[in-house]
Design a protein around this nucleic acid. Structure first.
Lengths: 212, 212, 212, 212
DNA sequence: TATGAATGAGCATTCATTCAT
DNA sequence: GATGAATGAATGCTCATTCAT
């Protein structure tokens, strides 16, 4: 199967193949419970070969984390570029695109989420990743700032507010993992809806006479 | 030192001792990274003896989870028994008592939270635990129902709402674990405050003229 | 096979058992080529158990090295305590006792020797071991110093001389390892004899008229 | 870049290139700790190509050993061809040329030395190499034989004597590897000097009246 | 009952060698 | 001839669990 010389593109493709095989394992089982054996078996790539493309297990995870970050960023960028009538709609759009990311790239979402916890979470120590996350949060902050300026959001530390909102939303999105416990069925859609509604309701000033 | 037969009370006392030694380890290091050797060392109880009181490592965790649930339940019960002037104050009280539980029994809080995720989370499969959680959620639901009746909360599936609120709040409370990442300092108090405010704001109908 | 509680003596005995099983493997195959599997198999002790008595493979080797050092030291001490008529006889006695150590504790000799070379040779970084070796060399230096005082050995830096002699002797003693290569039979005795003779001859001033 | 057929000379040149790249790695890190990857990287020759010129890792080492042997041989030959006034000077010259080899071809010296020990030491099983070493030793034996005939060296088995001398000298020369342990500085020159002196002193009959 | 020594399957990682191109 | 990607057996080490005392 060995080729004379792999181009950068082929190399990237192979890396992606390994990552594609790993993402589900890592997302569903977690970093700790995913073994190199499993990745080898699932990808059909020998263990030794895995180490040709990644220096160690953590590096696979980190690559997965970064890729997930890429995906999230571009998803939010798309949402940002959509013309929206007003600030409220803009915020709503961003929340919905976060849900979209969660729904259509659930493995990536869980990789990101799990990257914040646990001992494996090198994300915590990686300045580059940290800055990228902050950059994303800063982007989410923009419509909030605008909302404050427009007087539809109560003045506050907008960055802290964004972090709170992000945290609250993640809390809702992780409900399915949390709630085999509850008697919830599969209609999680309801919960996201509540989430959006409560958050919008919670941050927007309702007395419209006070608005400009 | 071995007694031929321990009374039920003595047995329970020993179990509790083991649990007291385990809770910090499990809460801070996580289930996976806590070893039976560590528990043995910290508790001063021989490894073999641990297996006399718990069939395996997971059972220690489960017991910890249950104990944490007890504590949470009684904390919320205390909050429920306090006389409150109105429904809003009642809800506020409950949220604050959840924060109190988080702050004063942080190990137990983290045990509960981590119990929902990962492979260790047998909580997910344990019907008894499931029912207890539902029971707690049902208790939290009461003031919400009352709020809907009083017209200060928009009509909705109140149980689903409670779950959403619970999820959002946990999201905020787990921020310190999440956010070496962010540039947050230690003033997490701010975030809880945001949480309470947004949630209350988000679920309560604000236009008071519409209320009865 | 597990005992209620192992006394310090039993523990030491077990350690010794593991070491006894390891010494031949390490002495003949070298540190690198001796595997924990082999030690486990030869000693009849499970791999996990090995790690109960030694933190890692290197620690087994270090213990072996130290034990060999003990043995060498006591061997030389015995030689030192034997009454000898004169300095020449004293030096001769020490050389012979070194040969005795080599012959009757060959594994230990080779452990010591190999400890000076290779990457494994933590001996090089261990100050304690370093000092013990220097102590031994200092003891060997004494009769040399006396010989210089008596005028039968040419004045020189006696410590440097001792090191040279030690090095030369080791060179001869390692001949059997070196010389499958040569057509030597098993009569290495000859070589030691040459060694002693050349060294004594080489350091002693022969013209007896020059002596006092 | 691939040619259909390389001349023998080109082949030899490539082999030499690989060997030149390997010698430092093997001499300083040892056979075991030198990897084919390292050799490939240092030489700029692909791993697969290495196996075109050498059947396996050991064969590279063996070639290095042989080359070192060539070098030693020619070094000693040069020394032998220098006109010397007497036998003592001749022996002295040979010892000094061995030191010269050690100093100016230290990698090769260490390759030779290490070839006698460890599992890598196929030198031990290779009859051809064995015979070459014996040939070198026989050459060194000549002045010794002459010395015996002249009565300046005590009659003995001269070949055994040569082996002993060789062993003793190697012992001294390997001191730098041995002696981070001792408090030696960098003045190893001293030790070689001791070595030559002791050996010459040790084998030569000093009472000149007995000589003719 | 209580102990803790013993176990060994399982893990991440390395590296000499092969072989399709 | 030349390449270097692919391989997988082997390594040192961990840790939940068992069991003789």
């Amino acid at each position: 199967m060995a080729r004379l010389c792999l181009t950068e593109a082929e190399k990237e493709q192979k890396k992606r193949h390994i990552m594609d095989s790993s993402v589900e394992l890592m997302a569903t089982q977690g970093y700790e419970h995913t073994t190199m054996q499993q990745i080898s078996k699932k990808s059909g790539v020998a263990i030794g070969t895995l180490y040709l493309y990644f220096n160690n297990k953590l590096e696979i995870y980190t690559a997965l984390f970064e890729e997930a970050l890429d995906l999230l960023e571009s998803t939010l960028n798309v949402a940002s570029s959509i013309p929206a009538t007003d600030t409220k709609a803009r915020i709503c759009l961003l929340l919905q695109s976060y849900i979209h990311f969660y729904q259509h790239h659930n493995h990536q979402y869980r990789i990101l989420f799990s990257g914040f916890f646990g001992k494996n979470a090198k994300a915590n120590e990686n300045v580059y990743l940290k800055n990228r996350i902050i950059k994303i949060l800063k982007q989410l902050e923009k419509p909030i700032i605008k909302g404050v300026e427009e007087g539809i959001i109560k003045p506050c530390d907008t960055f802290e507010l964004v972090i709170s909102l992000w945290a609250m939303f993640d809390g809702v999105l992780m409900l399915p993992q949390k709630t085999n416990i509850t008697s919830l069925g599969d209609q999680f859609q309801n919960y996201y809806t509540y989430g959006i509604e409560i958050i919008l309701n919670g941050i927007l000033i309702k007395d419209e006479s006070k608005q400009k």
